[in-house]
């Protein structure tokens, strides 16, 4: 029951994000959607993931989003034409976007069908790992150490790139 409420909130908020004219409202609805997701994590017995979701996505990242929107002062989205559906579909960015969306959809369908078929092996062990902060820490720094380090380097590259782009003369 609670699952449907939270999932409904998350999905409705996500759909409304796309539909808003005002970017500020979009950002806020995205936060609502993230909080809905965090609620789903609580239902899955992983309060740590839920709280991290709120701190990282709901808190830090969305505050930065708000900051950018406020600084750009984009109160109303400027639309070149009043039509809501773009008439010109031949544009290159649109084509790339469409291909990416199709790939993503295929991926989700593939993942869902695969998960539905195979029973989850060792569900108890997985649940225990997700629940305890200690076990998450141990898993990150031993079993998944390589993935963790690669992600760190990726973030570092992004940070260096951002500084390099923002500051022309260091």
């Amino acid at each position: 029951m609670l699952f449907y409420v939270l999932a409904g909130v998350a999905i409705a908020a996500s759909l409304l994000v796309v539909g808003q004219r005002n970017p500020m409202h979009s950002v806020l609805l995205l936060i609502v959607s993230f909080i809905g997701l965090a609620g789903l994590y609580v239902l899955l017995d992983s309060p740590f993931a839920a709280v991290t979701q709120i701190i990282v996505y709901g808190g830090a990242i969305m505050v930065l989003f708000l900051f950018v929107v406020m600084l750009l002062n984009a109160t109303q989205e400027e639309m070149p034409a009043r039509t809501t559906i773009p008439v010109k579909i031949g544009g290159r960015p649109l084509r790339v976007g469409a291909i990416l969306a199709a790939v993503f959809l295929a991926e989700i369908v593939w993942a869902l069908t695969r998960v539905a078929r195979a029973p989850i092996a060792g569900g108890e062990a997985v649940a225990a790992t997700v629940q305890s902060v200690r076990q998450i820490g141990i898993a990150i720094f031993t079993t998944h150490a390589f993935a963790f380090e690669v992600t760190s380097i990726l973030i570092l590259v992004a940070m260096v790139g951002a500084v390099a782009l923002a500051k022309r003369n260091l």
Partner: peptide, 8 residues
């Protein structure tokens, strides 16, 4: 988490 929501 709640404190970070208060910023909004």
């Amino acid at each position: 988490a709640i404190t970070s929501m208060g910023i909004y």
